[in-house]
């Protein structure tokens, strides 16, 4: 197989599932779960217990769905589980290192378990450990590693066999800001080499930096999915307007605004009113209204939507 698995994934959907249902006894972990995961770096977001890990386990064939269909690069995890795992690399969230091995031994060992020969596994392990930035520490027992080093070794063991699809579960967990930046850069560099990377994380700023596509999961369902830019563009035309004036003037001004624009929120604090509205007509109309009603415009700024806003809105909608 080797590098051929990358070709199978290609530019299309790397994972697609339709109406997947996974149950653990009476608990429904995934409920009518349908997603289309494209190639590139994809963020998998969701609160604790939303079903992110269950979805990853389903893709790995560790959990079998009760109903629905799923395919990974054209393969069915129920039938081709070993072929799929050969093309998948997995970096779990929690500590999972073999503490009696050095970093180098561990990466080479798991490389061999993924189908590499002994002769291939050692030079390749050095290569990926260089890539993740682990220097002489590779000769130390993994039990003595710091959190940052552990994360790097976990990433190295996930990519040692050059998988076409990579699952990274909380890759920046417990890392300091510099380490986090370096990890995100590594993810970006792996993603640039025709890999499909599914990153699960709670740190939405990190996701915003590296992901091109986002899937938000809640209560076992995919509630929002799409290109990150498209989700953020939903906020195009949103304006945050701050005005001051006499209460009657402000009331009249808001009423006029409502007639012309879509006003999403109005709040008042210490005599200053903050209005969120959707305006694609330019600022002139609003300013003219303000002059006519005798209110003072203190600020008129575009209100950018963030991934956090999208996430909170998606989760709240379901609740």
């Amino acid at each position: 197989m080797g590098g051929s698995s990358s070709d199978k994934v290609g530019e299309g959907m790397m994972i697609s599932s339709a109406d997947i249902e996974v149950r653990f006894g009476n608990i429904v972990a995934l409920d009518q779960f349908s997603v289309q995961v494209p190639s590139g770096i994809v963020g998998l977001l969701g609160p604790n217990g939303a079903g992110k890990s269950t979805f990853i386990k389903t893709v790995l064939g560790l959990v079998l769905p009760a109903s629905g269909t799923i395919n990974i690069a054209g393969l069915d995890p129920r039938k081709d589980v070993l072929a799929i795992r050969d093309m998948v690399g997995y970096m779990p969230e929690h500590d999972c290192l073999v503490e009696s091995m050095t970093g180098l031994e561990m990466v080479a060992y798991f490389g061999r378990l993924s189908g590499m020969s002994l002769e291939d596994s050692i030079p390749r392990s050095h290569e990926v450990l260089d890539f993740v930035g682990l220097g002489e520490e590779r000769y130390r027992l993994t039990g003595t590693y710091s959190t940052g080093m552990k994360q790097r070794v976990k990433l190295a063991q996930a990519i040692v066999h050059d998988p076409a699809i990579l699952f990274l579960d909380e890759p920046t967990n417990g890392m300091d800001p510099v380490g986090r930046e370096e990890m995100l850069e590594l993810i970006g560099r792996i993603g640039a080499s025709n890999k499909s990377i599914l990153v699960s994380s709670h740190i939405l700023q990190d996701m915003e930096k590296v992901c091109r596509h986002v899937i938000i999961i809640n209560n076992g369902r995919a509630v929002t999915q799409g290109p990150l830019q498209a989700l953020l563009d939903q906020g195009e035309g949103r304006i945050r307007l701050k005005v001051r004036g006499a209460p009657s003037a402000l009331t009249s001004f808001v009423a006029k605004l409502r007639q012309r624009f879509q006003v999403t929120s109005v709040s008042e604090e210490f005599g200053q009113m903050t209005i969120l509205l959707l305006n694609r007509e330019g600022s002139g109309v609003v300013m003219e209204m303000a002059i006519n009603e005798g209110v003072q415009v203190r600020s008129y700024t575009p209100d950018k939507i963030t991934l956090e806003d999208v996430f909170i809105r998606s989760v709240k909608e379901v609740v």
């Binding site: 590098g3 990358s6 020969s117 291939d120 990519i159 040692v160 066999h161 560099r189 792996i190 080499s193």
Partner: peptide, 8 residues
């Protein structure tokens, strides 16, 4: 990042 093209 360099790919690995060995035989499994």
């Amino acid at each position: 990042y360099r790919p690995w093209n060995g035989k499994r």
